[in-house]
Design a protein around this nucleic acid. Structure first.
Lengths: 283, 283
DNA sequence: TGAAAAGTTGTAAAATTACTACATTTGATG
DNA sequence: CATCAAATGTAGTAATTTTACAACTTTTCA
């Protein structure tokens, strides 16, 4: 829907000249909406009809219509576009690109968040006797973070990085236990196996993973976030951030469900940290 | 600023015909932005120049400019605001509030990011013989994540959760080594001590922490992010996300600095993971 | 009340802007 | 290197917007 997004994504489909137009617009969209087609053509070093064709390729009626869409995109509170980092970007460029594309991904995640499933997940977590968080590779740090959050709730929480320990822990799980498995792709073999073991023991298996993945199929409940991952860098970035926000949401839902008294308990946990600090405030 | 509001407020200042135009626009703004000046004039029962005068009275350059402003007003969804979660928020509310306030915080972080310091940090990291990432509590998972990223670069990376191990590791550090210490508050005693030990050994100490904190004072380089933390929940949320993005930025800067061949190496690391997966793509 | 002045509105022509048809160029393929 | 398809630009056309000015309405004050 957002036309700026569309421009970045469609990049491959553009012709050489059209790409020039795209670059000029992305470089300074604010200028673009105040330019006539002739001005924009000159700025891009192409002819006017090329600009016009560019607009039509993006499914707009023509140049004026395109400008309206662009104006809306800019006003939309989301000037964040998934611009990929390029080889000769300087620190200024890649810093902003990473911020912006992360935020663009979060915006997508926000819109695709399934409230009903989240609510169901919070239900299950509040009723759990014991909660385990397992992930491998980049997702291990997400599980680690979940441990840190849920640990404060004074519920039995388990976290292991070691797949043997994860496995053994699941062997000992049973009804009333919740196992949360985190994997962006949902294709990590050992996690899928763990899911099977836990389910075999009647534990509730919750997956923070992509839907329709092998892992998702083994779960009782799947929390999926449609995050367009930037694979250029061969490192998970946005997906992991979205997973963490999901953890925040689950943790928040958990505390709200537990009520007011429980939150005082949280405060107490935090106050206890003071001894290890030079001053107040939380870490 | 919002032109729709302006129309309703300015109502008194309009002439009789101009008010007709205003009414037609307010009745159906979506139609207005897709109409030509002639169509809108006919709908309002006035002449074209009247519509043009109407536009100018609202401080726009003319009809097309007015349409742009109108389009923006209509598109103007909620910009990200740091709305705190409240006690009787339902899943819908708290989910969106958490997304939005995280994004609001990231926006602040983005603007406060100090490019020069980031660049300097990348410099130091690329020249490091050995890189250590240490954090405690919530920041431990950030350090964990950093380990995961930098490990792929085939550089010696160290990560410990245990403060004794952290301490011992710093005792063995020396010139050319970089120690990255992560703490939102920068007041965790044992981290400050570690910083002192590392500096005593001529290692470079880098802090991902808030400026002017005790930890910041012990660092050679401070990467600070001005993130307004939501302390209501007694849990670090946005600060940690910002720290992770900073890790992404440093990692990206690192790979860019190392050049093209190096990135192929990254791809190889990723491809190696395939054996443990049911299919392709990274986790 | 009525005449001048100020303000408002519409008509028609000018200027700007965008679009279309067609010609030329570019690039790929056998 | 000949041929075809795709891409791009030129020039003319159509559309849209804006301007200039004339007609009309309302207000003001003798």
């Amino acid at each position: 829907m957002n036309i700026l997004e569309k421009i970045t994504q469609h990049n491959a489909v553009f012709s050489k000249s059209e790409r020039k137009v795209a670059e000029v617009i992305l470089a300074n969209p604010q200028t673009a909406i105040h330019s006539s087609i002739a001005t924009l053509a000159k700025m891009s070093g192409v002819s006017e009809p090329t600009v016009n064709r560019f607009c039509r390729r993006l499914d707009t009626k023509g140049y004026p219509d395109f400008k309206l869409h662009l104006a809306q995109s800019l006003a939309n509170g989301t000037p964040y576009v998934n611009r990929h980092v390029e080889e000769n970007d300087g620190p200024e460029e890649y810093t902003h690109k990473i911020f912006e594309s992360t935020m663009a991904s979060l915006e997508v995640a926000r819109q695709s968040a399934d409230i009903a499933t989240i609510n169901r997940a919070v239900d299950l977590l509040t009723q759990a006797q014991k909660i385990s968080f397992f992930g491998l590779g980049a997702s291990a740090s997400v599980a680690h973070d979940a441990l840190n959050k849920f640990f404060r709730f004074n519920v039995p929480v388990i976290y292991f990085e070691d797949i043997i320990m994860q496995r053994m822990s699941c062997m000992n799980s049973g009804e009333g236990d919740v196992v949360v498995l985190i994997s962006h792709t949902g294709r990590t073999k050992s996690l899928v196996e763990i899911a099977q073991i836990a389910r075999g023991n009647d534990a509730t298996v919750m997956g923070i993973t992509s839907k329709d993945s092998p892992l998702a199929q083994e779960c009782n409940l799947v929390l999926s976030l449609e995050v367009p991952e930037d694979t250029d860098m061969y490192m998970p970035m946005a997906s992991r951030i979205a997973q963490l926000i999901l953890i925040d949401i689950l943790a928040t839902g958990f505390t709200l469900r537990r009520g007011n008294k429980f939150r005082e308990n949280l405060k107490r946990v935090k106050d206890t940290l003071r001894g290890s600090r030079f001053d107040k405030r939380g870490d």
